[in-house]
Computed example of a mutant assay.
Amino acid sequence: MKLDDRDSRILTLLQEDSRISNADLAEAVGMSPSALWRRVRALEEAGIIERYGAVVNAPAMGLGFQAIVHVHLTRHDPDKLVEFI
């Protein structure tokens, strides 16, 4: 699917607020609500929009520390896996 400027604008706005109403999104992009709905549906069906999500506030949840860790094991036999865990 080839994306145009409207598609890019739709995607930007949805990334900023995935809960934006169809009517508000249509107005922001300059389209009718029905045309916008079809466009968003096409983006979903093409796999460009995979899913919708929520960004949570970690400190508000009582999480003081966050880390992404990548571990590479040189051996994957069950004993070494248990030892690592």
Rank of each mutant, 00 (worst) to 15 (best):
M1T: 04
K2R: 11
D4Q: 04
D4T: 05
D5L: 10
D5H: 12
D5Y: 06
D7G: 04
D7I: 15
D7E: 10
R9V: 00
R9P: 00
I10C: 02
L11K: 05
T12A: 09
T12G: 08
T12V: 01
L13A: 10
L13D: 03
L13M: 08
L14S: 03
L14T: 02
L14K: 01
E16P: 02
E16V: 13
E16A: 08
D17W: 04
D17S: 04
S18G: 12
S18R: 07
S18A: 12
I20L: 03
S21A: 10
S21Q: 03
N22W: 05
A23R: 11
A23Y: 10
A23W: 11
A23C: 02
A26M: 13
A26S: 06
E27G: 03
E27W: 09
E27V: 09
A28S: 09
V29N: 00
G30W: 01
M31E: 02
M31L: 12
S32I: 01
P33I: 07
S34I: 13
S34M: 15
S34D: 14
L36N: 00
W37P: 01
W37V: 06
W37E: 06
W37I: 10
W37F: 07
R38F: 14
R38H: 15
R39C: 03
R39G: 02
V40T: 12
V40F: 15
A42F: 07
A42E: 03
E45F: 11
G47E: 01
I48P: 01
I49P: 09
I49F: 11
E50F: 09
E50S: 12
R51A: 08
R51L: 04
Y52L: 09
Y52E: 01
G53T: 12
G53K: 03
G53M: 01
G53L: 14
V56C: 14
V56D: 11
V56R: 15
V56F: 09
N57I: 05
A58P: 08
A58E: 06
P59F: 15
A60H: 09
A60D: 07
A60Q: 02
A60S: 11
M61C: 10
M61D: 07
G62P: 00
G62H: 10
G62S: 05
L63K: 09
G64Q: 14
G64L: 10
G64H: 06
G64I: 14
Q66L: 11
Q66E: 04
A67T: 12
A67H: 08
I68S: 09
V69W: 07
V69T: 14
H70N: 12
H70S: 10
H72S: 12
T74W: 12
T74R: 15
T74A: 15
T74Q: 13
T74G: 11
R75A: 12
R75W: 10
D77C: 08
P78R: 07
P78I: 10
D79S: 06
K80T: 00
L81F: 07
V82T: 01
V82A: 01
V82G: 00
F84E: 04
I85N: 02
I85Q: 05
I85R: 02
